[in-house]
Nucleic acid binder design. Structure first.
Length: 174
DNA sequence: TGATTGATGAGCT
DNA sequence: GCTCATCAATCAG
């Protein structure tokens, strides 16, 4: 899918290349595992809403997946920039395209996403939304692969990170 | 070898 | 329990 963002008069569009799933049950790494708290309450919102959390003075973006009250979401970890690249460079203070949106906190900075976007509904297509591209979603040289998640200390073994293998816009090389 | 990043964890209430 | 930014890991030069 493409992640689209209206920022002033500029349209940002990028292809999602890497995500991680965080489950409602049996997942110690999931923020929802401790129950509803002020910090994580947006993770229990309706499907298609946003859960944005702050970590190390930065933000990370999740899309809530399950029904309201369940507490399951997908962390967007990396993007391949397609449109609005100049604005992303400006926001990130970086010239290299590979440093704009590769990494969960990087893409939030490039897209201007912060805690104020918590609860935003993706399907309302206002500030932030998803679009299904017309061209093939996965190129012939790519395929989706599941790997263990990155940067967590609990439930490391679960294969809940999904990458577009063959695409260079991932949060980590390999 | 220096910079950047980050589903944490120390410290305070 | 909540706030808020460390420093280890990883990557770029």
């Amino acid at each position: 899918m493409h992640l689209c963002r209206k920022l002033g008069t500029t349209l940002l569009r990028s292809r999602i290349t890497e995500t991680e799933a965080y489950l409602a049950e049996g997942d110690a790494a999931s923020h929802s595992s401790i129950g509803v708290r002020p910090r994580n309450r947006w993770m229990f919102g309706p499907p298609g809403s946003l859960y944005v959390f702050a970590i190390h003075a930065r933000c990370c973006l999740n899309a809530v997946t399950e029904s309201e009250g369940i507490g399951s979401a997908v962390l967007i970890r990396s993007l391949e920039p397609l449109e609005g690249i100049d604005l992303m460079k400006q926001r990130r203070q970086r010239e290299k395209i590979g440093e704009l949106t590769c990494g969960p906190a990087r893409l939030c900075e490039a897209y201007g996403i912060d805690l104020s976007h918590n609860g935003l509904l993706l399907f309302q297509r206002k500030q932030l939304w998803l679009e299904s591209p017309l061209e093939p979603k996965v190129q012939a040289t790519e395929h989706i692969e599941a790997t263990p998640r990155i940067g967590i200390s609990k439930a490391k073994e679960l294969p809940l990170r999904f990458i577009l293998k063959g695409n260079s816009f991932l949060s980590r090389s390999s």
